[in-house]
Deep mutational scan, measured.
Amino acid sequence: TCNCGQEAVLLTVRKEGPNRGRQFFKCNGGSCNFFLWADS
């Protein structure tokens, strides 16, 4: 659950770079700036 109470979504980094393939949680509604690496 993110900061605004919505269910956070699990996404994967697709951009080229050191974090490519890494998963993270983000706010589903985009109404808050919630971000969390899945492996932390």
Rank of each mutant, 00 (worst) to 15 (best):
V9Q: 12
G21N: 09
L10T: 12
G5K: 08
S31Q: 14
R22T: 05
D39A: 04
L11R: 14
K15D: 14
R14C: 10
Q6R: 14
N19D: 14
E16V: 04
R14W: 11
E16Y: 05
T12K: 06
F35G: 03
S31H: 15
N19E: 09
R14Y: 12
N3R: 03
C27T: 00
L11C: 09
L36F: 14
F35Q: 08
A8E: 02
C2G: 02
G30S: 07
C27E: 03
N3D: 13
R20E: 12
S31T: 15
P18E: 05
R14A: 13
L36V: 08
W37T: 04
L11Q: 14
F35A: 03
N28L: 09
C27H: 01
P18M: 06
R14G: 11
G5V: 01
R22G: 03
G5E: 13
S31R: 14
C27L: 00
R22K: 13
G30L: 04
F25V: 04
T1S: 10
G17A: 02
N28T: 12
G17P: 00
R14V: 12
E7P: 12
A8R: 03
T1M: 15
G29C: 09
G30W: 07
N33L: 00
L10G: 04
V9G: 06
G5C: 04
C4G: 00
C27P: 02
A8M: 10
N28V: 11
F34K: 03
E16C: 06
G5L: 02
R22W: 02
P18A: 12
K26S: 13
G17V: 02
P18H: 06
W37K: 07
G21Q: 02
K26C: 11
Q23D: 13
G29V: 12
G29D: 13
T12Q: 08
F35K: 13
E7H: 11
K15F: 11
R20L: 14
N19G: 03
K15L: 06
P18R: 08
G29A: 15
N3S: 13
D39L: 00
N3L: 07
S31I: 09
G5H: 05
R20C: 03
T1Q: 08
L36W: 11
D39P: 10
L11W: 12
L10M: 09
A38V: 07
F25K: 05
N19A: 04
S31M: 11
L36A: 14
T1W: 00
N33S: 12
T12A: 02
E16N: 12
N28A: 14
W37A: 04
K15W: 11
N19L: 09
V9P: 08
G29T: 06
C32T: 01
S31C: 08
F34V: 01
G30V: 03
F35R: 05
F34H: 05
G30Q: 08
V9C: 09
E16W: 10
T12V: 04
W37P: 08
R22L: 07
E16L: 08
C4V: 00
N19R: 01
K15M: 12
N33T: 11
R14T: 12
E16S: 06
Q23H: 14
S31D: 14
K15Y: 07
L11A: 13
N28S: 11
R14K: 15
G21I: 01
L10E: 10
G21S: 04
L11S: 13
K15G: 15
Q6G: 10
N19M: 14
N19T: 11
A38G: 07
L11T: 13
R14E: 13
W37C: 01
A8P: 15
R14L: 11
T12Y: 06
R20D: 15
F35V: 06
C2S: 02
L36Y: 07
Q23W: 03
C4L: 00
Q23T: 09
K15E: 15
A8G: 05
R22P: 02
P18C: 04
N33G: 12
N3G: 01
T12P: 03
C32V: 00
R22S: 03
L10I: 08
L36R: 13
V9S: 09
S31E: 15
P18W: 01
D39G: 08
G30E: 11
G17W: 02
E16R: 10
D39E: 11
L36M: 13
E16P: 09
R14N: 10
G5S: 05
R20G: 10
T12G: 01
R22M: 02
G21R: 02
C4R: 00
F25R: 05
T12C: 05
G21W: 00
E16K: 12
A8L: 08
G29R: 11
S31L: 10
W37V: 09
Q6A: 15
N28W: 14
W37G: 04
V9R: 10
C27G: 00
R20P: 08
T12S: 04
G21V: 01
N33W: 03
R20H: 15
K26A: 13
G30A: 05
G5A: 05
A38P: 02
S40P: 09
R22N: 04
A8W: 06
G17N: 04
L11G: 14
F35W: 08
S31W: 07
C27R: 00
F34L: 01
N33V: 01
L10S: 06
G30P: 06
L10C: 15
R20V: 09
L11V: 14
K26L: 07
L10K: 12
S31G: 12
S31K: 15
K26M: 08
G17R: 02
E16G: 07
L36G: 10
T12W: 01
R20W: 07
L36K: 15
K15N: 14
G17L: 02
L36S: 15
R14Q: 13
N28R: 15
R14S: 11
S31A: 12
A8D: 00
V13S: 08
R20S: 10
C32Q: 01
C32P: 00
F35P: 05
E16T: 11
V9E: 12
E7S: 08
G5R: 04
D39C: 09
Q23R: 10
A8F: 00
G5M: 07
N28I: 15
K26R: 13
R22Q: 02
E16A: 10
D39M: 00
N19W: 04
A38D: 06
C32R: 00
F35E: 04
K26G: 13
T12E: 01
N33A: 11
K15T: 14
F35L: 04
G29P: 03
Q6V: 06
K26P: 09
G29L: 09
N19H: 15
C27A: 05
D39R: 01
L36H: 09
F35T: 03
C32S: 06
G17Q: 02
F34R: 05
D39T: 07
W37R: 03
F25M: 10
R14P: 07
C32G: 00
L10A: 07
K15V: 03
L10R: 11
K15A: 07
F34Q: 05
C27V: 00
F25W: 11
K26V: 07
K15R: 15
Q23G: 09
C4A: 01
F34E: 02
K15C: 06
A8S: 06
R20Y: 13
R14M: 14
E7G: 09
E7R: 10
R22A: 05
V9L: 15
D39Q: 02
G17I: 08
P18L: 06
N19V: 03
A38L: 07
L10V: 06
G21L: 04
C27M: 01
N19S: 10
G5Q: 08
P18V: 10
L36E: 13
G21A: 06
T12R: 05
C2F: 01
T12H: 05
W37L: 03
